[in-house]
Structures are given as C-alpha cells and as structure tokens.
Design a protein around this nucleic acid. Structure first.
Lengths: 144, 144
DNA sequence: TAAATAAAGGACATTTTTGTCCGATTAATG
DNA sequence: CATTAATCGGACAAAAATGTCCTTTATTTA
C-alpha cells in the first residue's frame, strides 16, 4: 500500500507529534530508536517532511524535530503520503493502464474507485494530533 | 497497491478468459500485444498462474493459454493476487509493524482494517467471468 | 572563539522488482 | 521422423527502492 519510506515517515511524524505535546524536541537517533527504523534512511525521510513543511527542524545542539500544536491538527495523513509517495495512490489505474477513466475504464475501474475514495477520505480526515493522542493514552503502539 | 507483475497477471487472465469464451487459445505474444505488457516478463507471470491452476497451458504448435468456462466463475481476483503477490495485501500492518493486531494496534490499525476488509471483499467476489464479459461487450478496456 | 551537537546533503551500497535472453522440453503436422 | 511452434525454466541485466557513510553547515554553550 505505502512504501517503506512512507511507513517510516508516518510513524516518525506521529512520534514527533507525541513528544511535541510535552514540548520536547527529538533527534533522528531517538526517533529511529523509538519507531524501530534505520537511522540514516529515516533522516532522509525527515528531510523530505521538513522541506514540505510538515515537520519543523532545528539544527545544532538542543536541535531536532518538532511540530507545533496547531500543525498537528492541520497536518493530515494524506499530506505525508503525498510528500513521500506522491499521488500515485490517488491517481493511476489499479491495473496499471495509462489512460483509465470513466469514459475508457479498465475492467476494475469502478470497484477501485470505491475503495480508493474510502482510502482517500480516511487519509484526508486523519490528523497527526488524533494519532499522537492515541499513542499518548497508551491505546496504540509504534514499535514492533 | 498491486505489483506490476500482479497488474499484468490480472490483465492477462482477463484477456485469456475473453478469448476462451470464443473457444480460442492464445499465445504469450498475442497476450502481451493485447494487454500492452513486456513479452518475456508476461511469460513468467503466466507460468505462475499456470502452476497455481488459475489458467491452463498447452505446449507445442496450436498450444497457448486458456481457461475453462467453469473456471472463469470459480477464479476470483483474490486467487490471482495471492498467486503473484502473496497475501501481504491482506495480512501485515499498514504502517509496517511486525506485530500489529487488535490487542497491540498501530495508530492506524482500525482505519486500515476497514479499508482492507472492503478490498478483500471486492477481490474475493469478483470473478474472471464478470471481468471478461465487460470487456466482450465493449464496456471496458485492457490497453493503454 | 573553540568545541560539541544536531540536521542537511551528496555519494555510494545493497536488495528487490522488473525485465531480457536463450536453451530445453513438449507436441502437432507434413 | 524432421520441422516447427509453443511453453518452461534458468541465468542474466537493468532499474527502482531501500539503506549506509561521510562531509558540510548551522547553532549552542563553555
């Protein structure tokens, strides 16, 4: 469904949000440790998220990554997915046809539209804040 | 969503079914031509489908691939997907966690379950025959 | 201002997926 | 029985995704 990069990206963003709720900035090392991901690869992904203004980075000692409280509401999952995997999840034919639309549909077109509409709705309506608070309360997990 | 191999596999199977409805056996070359896919790669995928008894192959002159009319009803998309991509679409966590279940869910677990249940239902209930007849009537397309 | 700390970014390495090539095998037909 | 047409299967090649290493840059603090 998502690429590995995107999976790490979402997990990292949720973890950053969780810590930002306590006013704590976190380093790549801590993030990778806490979400069980390869450090250097995670660093690359965080750069992408930072460039896309999804998270905020601060260089130097006491630096790290953080997300402002307001942004946790504003940032929806679809923004993270789009920043890392592009929009291929939303666009493009389920069977790989270049031109596939209501006028010239592939055999699976209609059934795919339904599923992707649901997925898209879910991603567009799920905020980082919502995911971070679930973690905070101990209802959900990011590791293993 | 699906791998390229799986996309080609589904398109190929639908095309074979379409031709089998007219009692025609088709060669890899014709299939690749008609679904616009790389020939040799398509041949590999057809071998997989054949080994999994999803399509039937006949060697030698006048040989090729075919699907019996009864099998077109029996073969559902989920069987093709499973034969080529395995069950990673059904199993496994959306965020890539090794252990993610109702007891120890990732932050997206519940929302993912819903979407995947829908996807799974769709694949399990869609037969090759259904897809082939849509093509036959000219409602759908397999190329471009 | 020097040392230390943390992200940024470029180059490289590994693994997986996608794709190609070619000889072996099978079967039909003249 | 030789030829030909087709799949089968193994080895190889190319491209993309995943992952690592190391140098540079920015910033804090002693």
């Amino acid at each position: 469904m998502f690429s590995k990069a995107c999976e790490y990206g979402i997990r990292a963003a949720v973890y950053i949000a969780l810590r930002s709720l306590d006013g704590r900035r976190v380093s790549v090392n801590e993030i990778a440790e806490e979400i069980d991901s390869p450090i250097a690869f995670t660093a690359k992904i965080l750069q992408q998220l930072s460039r896309n203004n999804i998270i905020h980075s601060v260089k130097g000692p006491t630096g790290g990554f953080e997300i402002a409280r307001e942004d946790m509401d504003a940032v929806k999952l679809n923004m993270i997915v789009k920043a890392i995997d592009g929009d291929k999840i939303y666009v493009g034919c389920g069977l790989g046809l270049k031109e596939c639309n209501a006028q010239k549909p592939c055999p699976l077109h209609d059934k795919f539209v339904d599923i992707r509409t649901d997925l898209s709705k879910m991603l567009k309506s799920t905020s980082l804040y919502e995911l971070a608070t679930g973690l905070e309360v101990g209802l959900t997990y990011l590791k293993r």
